[in-house]
Design a protein around this nucleic acid. Structure first.
Length: 432
RNA sequence: GCUGAGGUAGCCUAGCCCGGUAAGGCGCCAGCCUUGAAAGCUGGUGGCGAUCUCGCCGCGGGAGUUCGAAUCUCCCCCUCAGCGCCA
C-alpha cells in the first residue's frame, strides 16, 4: 500500500510512476482513491463536530448535576444528537473503508532503475555467468530422467492428487535434502537465521503480503477455516512481526525461510510439462530481510549476489534479468530474476526471483520502526529472494549433469551432503 | 473439545462490582544538576483530522442501552492455565 501522505502531497509523482506500469486502470484507481480521501476527510470533520458537541453537552450535564441544577434543556438537545451522529459516523466509516479498498489495489511505486517494457520479453539482461551447453544432443528432459531412473512417479501422483503433483523417490530425495542443506549452510554463513515458518496463514496477514488477484489465483484455502496454504515462506516471514514495532538498532534482520510452497496457479501457465519444473508443491529456501529504508537498495544487491553465488557453486550457467515495468508485479518496487540455462530446452528459465518490496508489505502489515522501544512513523522495508527452490534446481541439475550412460553426476558442492556420492543411479524400491 | 483466567498506550500494571476528561511504573527524549556519567528533580512521550495555541479517536473486534461506556448487556476473535485427545 502506498503512503497516504504521498497521495495527498505529491500526487503528480505517484501518477508519473504508476503510468510506467502501462496499465491505465492504476491511474483510474489512484484518481478514485484521491477523491475518496478528500470525501472521507470532509465526512470525518462532520462526525467530529457532532462528537465534540456531544462531549460538551455531557460535560455540562455532569456539571449541572453536581451543582444540583436541572439540566433538562441540555438533555433535550443531547437526546437529539445521536441520530445525526450515527449518520455521519456511518458515512465516515464507509468512505474510509472504501478509500482503503481502492488504495490496496494500487501497486507499489517502481524504482527508477526498472526498465520500461510491456512484458517479460522486454526484461533487460544485466549479467550472465558460465558457458551454456549449446546443442541438446541426446539429452533427456528432466522429467524423463526421473522416470527412467525410477526416481519419480508422475502417473501415480496424478491418480492420487491430480496433475502437478509428484512422488520423489530414492536418491533424488537425498539430492533435494542436499540442496536444502547446502543453501541453508551458505546463508547461515552470511548472517541469516534459519526459520521454519507456519505453512498456513490467516487471511488478514495474507492480504498484507500479496495482492488480491494472486490471492484468488494461486492460494489453496482450507475448507471451513480461515487458513491458507502458503505460496512461499516469504509470506509467513513478512507476517512474523505483524503489527509490531521493530527497533532500528536490530535492523537489518536476515532470515532464511525453509518451507514447502503451495500454488494452484489457476489462470497462469498451469502445469506445462512432465516433471517438477512447475508444480503445485515444492520446497524452497528463501532469503528474507527487514531493513531500514536507506539500506534496502544495497541489501537487494546482497540478496541477488547470494543467489548468484549459489548457482555458481553448483556450476550452473545463468543470467540475471532486471524485470521490466510491465512484468514486475504488484508488490515489488524492483525485481531481478535469475534464469538458469536448461541445456535440453536450450533456454534460460527462471529459478530465482529477487525483490525489493520497499514499504509496501510493511505498511499493509502494520509494521513500524522505532528507536529503543519507542514507536516511530517510519515503515521498514522488506526484501525477499529465492535462495534455492529445490524443484527447479533439481530440474536444471538433471538436465545439465546427466551422463551418456543414463546416470546423473552429483554437483561437487552437494557431495558432502550425499555421503560423498559422485553420482545417482537407478532407484529400486528396496532399502537404499 | 471442556473448564477457568485474561486482552488497557512501545512494555508492565490500576481503574471495571458502583457509568461522568484513562491513574501509575518501566523504557525512551529534553531540560536542570555534574568535569563526564549515574542517581535525583522537572517536563515530554499513541493515532487521525483541521480553519494547525484546536478537535476527535484510542481500553481485543462488533452491536446495543444511555445525554454520556474501559466500566452495564449481547455476539465474535485471540492468548494463557488445567483437563481431554495426540506425532
Amino acid at each position: 500500500m502506498i503512503d497516504v501522505e504521498l497521495l495527498r502531497n505529491r500526487p503528480e509523482k505517484v501518477e508519473e510512476n504508476l503510468a510506467r506500469r502501462r496499465n491505465p486502470e492504476y491511474l483510474r484507481l489512484f484518481a478514485e482513491a484521491r477523491a475518496k480521501d478528500a470525501e472521507w476527510r470532509a465526512a470525518l470533520l462532520e462526525a467530529d463536530h457532532f462528537r465534540r458537541r456531544r462531549n460538551e453537552l455531557s460535560r455540562e450535564i455532569a456539571a449541572a448535576r453536581r451543582e444540583a441544577k436541572s439540566p433538562t434543556a441540555l438533555e433535550e438537545e443531547a437526546r437529539g444528537l445521536p441520530e445525526g451522529l450515527r449518520a455521519a459516523e456511518q458515512r465516515e466509516h464507509e468512505l474510509h473503508a472504501s478509500r482503503d479498498a481502492v488504495l490496496r489495489r494500487i501497486p507499489n511505486l517502481l524504482d527508477d532503475a526498472v526498465p520500461y517494457g510491456k512484458d517479460d520479453s522486454e526484461n533487460v539482461v544485466v549479467a550472465t555467468w558460465g558457458e551454456p551447453i549449446r546443442g541438446a544432443g541426446e539429452r533427456k528432459a528432466h522429467g524423463d530422467v526421473l522416470e527412467a531412473l525410477g526416481l519419480a512417479e508422475f502417473d501415480r501422483a496424478r491418480r492420487a492428487s491430480g496433475a502437478g503433483f509428484y512422488y520423489l523417490e530414492g536418491d533424488v530425495v537425498l539430492l533435494d535434502l542436499a540442496l536444502q542443506r547446502f543453501a541453508l549452510d551458505f546463508l547461515r554463513g552470511r548472517g541469516f537465521t534459519p526459520v521454519e515458518p507456519p505453512f498456513l496463514l490467516r487471511r488478514e496477514p495474507y492480504e498484507g503480503v500479496t495482492d488480491l488477484a494472486d490471492f484468488e489465483n494461486v492460494m489453496y484455502k482450507i475448507e471451513g477455516e480461515d487458513l491458507y496454504l502458503i505460496a512461499t515462506s516469504e509470506h509467513p516471514l513478512a507476517a512474523l512481526y505483524l503489527g509490531e514495532i521493530l527497533e532500528e538498532e536490530r535492523l537489518p534482520i536476515r532470515l532464511a525461510g525453509l518451507s514447502y510452497s503451495f500454488r494452484r496457479e489457476i489462470g497462469g501457465h498451469g502445469v506445462d510439462q512432465k516433471g517438477i519444473f512447475r508444480v503445485h508443491q515444492f520446497f524452497k529456501i528463501e532469503q528474507f530481510i527487514f531493513a531500514r529504508p536507506e539500506d534496502s537498495p544495497r541489501l537487494h544487491e546482497e540478496l541477488r549476489a547470494n543467489a548468484e553465488e549459489l548457482f555458481r557453486r553448483l556450476k550452473v550457467p545463468y543470467r540475471v534479468v532486471n524485470v521490466c515495468t510491465g512484468d514486475v508485479g504488484t508488490v515489488a518496487a524492483k525485481k531481478y530474476d535469475i534464469e538458469a540455462w536448461f541445456p535440453r530446452q536450450q533456454a534460460y528459465r527462471e529459478v530465482v526471483s529477487c525483490s525489493n518490496c520497499t514499504d509496501y508489505q510493511s505498511r499493509r502489515l502494520g509494521i513500524r520502526m522505532g528507536k529503543a522501544g519507542r514507536p516511530g512513523k517510519v515503515v521498514p522495508h522488506t526484501l525477499n529472494s529465492t535462495a534455492i527452490a529445490t524443484s527447479r534446481a533439481i530440474a536444471v541439475i538433471l538436465e545439465q549433469y546427466q551422463r551418456p550412460d543414463g546416470s546423473v553426476e552429483v554437483p561437487e558442492v552437494l557431495r558432502p551432503y550425499m555421503d560423498g556420492r559422485e553420482a545417482i543411479a537407478v532407484a529400486s524400491k528396496g532399502p537404499s
